[in-house]
Design a protein around this nucleic acid. Structure first.
Lengths: 242, 242
DNA sequence: TATTTATGATAGTATTACTATCTTATAAAA
DNA sequence: TTTTATAAGATAGTAATACTATCATAAATA
């Protein structure tokens, strides 16, 4: 039922340059034609990220996207039913990618506290685009998710979309974080809610810091590192065994 | 620059039935004609709340609203420039109303911890509609804010809107909560961020609980009281003086 | 070589998001 | 009381959005 999204990781181990292929499973119900299977599809992903980042999801249309790519509106509709599905696709890809980043960067860490700190840092820090990789600019995508991500589920269709498993990557990520939280303190009562709080606040505090700074304590420096400090304080106060 | 929105509070003091008038200042730049100044205007507020609650902000149009009220599209446009302004108006009204609720219900409380607990309860609990009052159904509005509230600021125009003070009620509320937090612990470093976290999570955990329950620990009971427990635990662990 | 498949080109429709104008009812000012 | 603002209803119209349908062609595959 699922097929495979390739993502490349470059490693240099003992002077040997390696290239791994990470597989992010994408839900087939999110598209009509697999955007990763053709040049046009890849262009749809690449240019939609650029366009949404530039002018926001509300003003984003398939017409503008088609003009940007140099194809026709009908061409886009062969890949995605509508722009909502495309947004859900992009968010699902992002959460899947982030879950991999987390498992990759916490792989050899045993201490759950160190692990959770790493997760918070990965969530709250800007990502560098891996130029080499693909048609997906992770840095721009990260910024899109901050501003547009919650629009993927804050709809009346959330129940229908959820039945079709569109939010599985988000829920999986939340479960991963919830489990690390339980490793830190097996008696903590709200691992999943704290997990979703960390995810959402890593992004919302970033949005607030840059757009409505008086809602945060980071308005002066506007440094993401401060969000990390705040979240660390919040999380580890809660998990302290008393 | 501001004018006045009347909201009625009924009190029974020593057998004497009293009616107070609360004034919620609404930013004039949010509308073209004051919706509180006429029957049509009040109908726009009343029916827009019903319609947005019923089918969501995305599918909500001024055409449908006009049909619902029994007026014309052009009639609506005389009050609000577009549906975004109307949404911002409704959210601003809600935050202003909530700030009053908070100051009213914490008025005689000295202990900042008790005060903060009251705030969390007010934020995370469903509100009963005050039938008598007005054309605004606070209960429906509360549910709208949960699902649609963040769409008021998660836009590319957030900077422009902010310059026009559209988010002042939200920021004022956040400042009020931040100050109570500082009363609890003057050394706490993130009062405003914790304030906005409480506000957002009171709503997001509610949305998740009802729509994506695996993102929370309240999926089984679906009781708002559990969100209050979670937030209390989160907040007061952080504020504990160590 | 035949045939499937993806794309391009073009057209068309219903709905959305407005703007404009003209008329009538009403209420306030002269 | 007459004049005159003002709000609202009625109607029309336009550009953009969100699609769907059809036909031709080029490339890949059988």
């Amino acid at each position: 039922m699922f097929f495979v999204h390739l993502y490349f990781i470059k490693l240099t181990v003992n002077q040997v340059y390696m290239k791994l292929q990470l597989q992010i499973k994408m839900n087939e119900a999110l598209f009509l034609r697999n955007p990763e299977s053709s040049e046009l599809g890849k262009n749809i992903l690449k240019h939609s990220i650029q366009l949404i980042h530039k002018s926001g999801f509300e003003t984003f249309t398939f017409k503008k996207l088609a003009e940007d790519i140099g194809t026709t509106e009908a061409g886009i509709y062969r890949y995605f039913e509508n722009k909502h599905k495309l947004l859900v696709y992009l968010t699902a890809w992002y959460w899947g990618w982030l879950e991999f980043q987390i498992s990759f960067h916490t792989n050899n860490i045993n201490d759950p506290i160190v692990k959770l700190k790493k997760v918070i840092k990965l969530l709250a820090s800007a990502v560098a685009d891996d130029e080499q990789t693909s048609y997906i600019n992770e840095s721009l995508l990260h910024q899109i998710i901050i501003t547009e991500g919650s629009k993927a589920y804050l709809t009346k269709q959330v129940g229908e979309d959820n039945k079709q498993q569109f939010f599985k990557p988000y829920k999986d990520l939340c479960a991963v974080i919830g489990n690390i939280i339980l490793e830190c303190n097996p008696k903590y009562k709200y691992p999943k809610s704290l997990g979703s709080t960390i995810i959402e606040m890593a992004h919302f505090q970033n949005f607030f810091m840059n757009n409505l700074p008086s809602l945060t304590d980071f308005g002066k420096t506007k440094k993401e590192a401060e969000i990390v400090f705040f979240l660390n304080d919040l999380v580890f106060s809660s998990l302290k065994k008393s």
